[in-house]
Amino acid sequence: MTSHSNRTTSGTEAPAVALITALQSLSRAQREAAARIAHELDWPRAGVAVVHLLAKCGPASLSDIAARQRVDLSVASRQVSTLADAGYVVRTVDDEDRRVRTVELTESGWALAAEASEQYSKLIDQAFAAWSPEDLAEATRTLDRLVDTISANTTHRRSPQNQQECA
Rank of each mutant, 00 (worst) to 15 (best):
H4A: 15
T8F: 05
T12K: 07
E13Y: 13
A14H: 08
A16N: 04
L19E: 05
I20N: 11
Q24C: 15
Q24M: 13
R28I: 09
R28C: 06
R31M: 08
R31S: 08
A34C: 12
R36L: 15
H39S: 12
L41V: 06
D42C: 11
D42Q: 04
A49C: 00
V50M: 02
V51W: 01
S63C: 02
D64R: 09
A66K: 00
V71Q: 02
S74W: 11
S74Q: 11
V75C: 02
S77Y: 12
R78E: 06
A84S: 13
D85F: 07
A86L: 09
G87S: 05
Y88R: 05
V89G: 00
R91V: 01
T92P: 09
E96D: 14
R98P: 14
R101L: 04
V103M: 01
V103E: 02
L105Y: 10
T106H: 07
E107D: 10
E107W: 15
S108T: 14
S108Y: 05
W110M: 04
W110F: 06
L112I: 07
A114N: 02
S117Q: 14
Q119E: 10
Y120Q: 04
Y120R: 08
K122V: 14
K122L: 12
Q126A: 15
S132K: 11
P133C: 04
D135M: 03
A137M: 13
E138G: 11
A139N: 00
T142Y: 12
R145N: 15
V147I: 10
T149A: 15
S151A: 07
N153D: 07
T154V: 07
Q161T: 12
A167C: 14
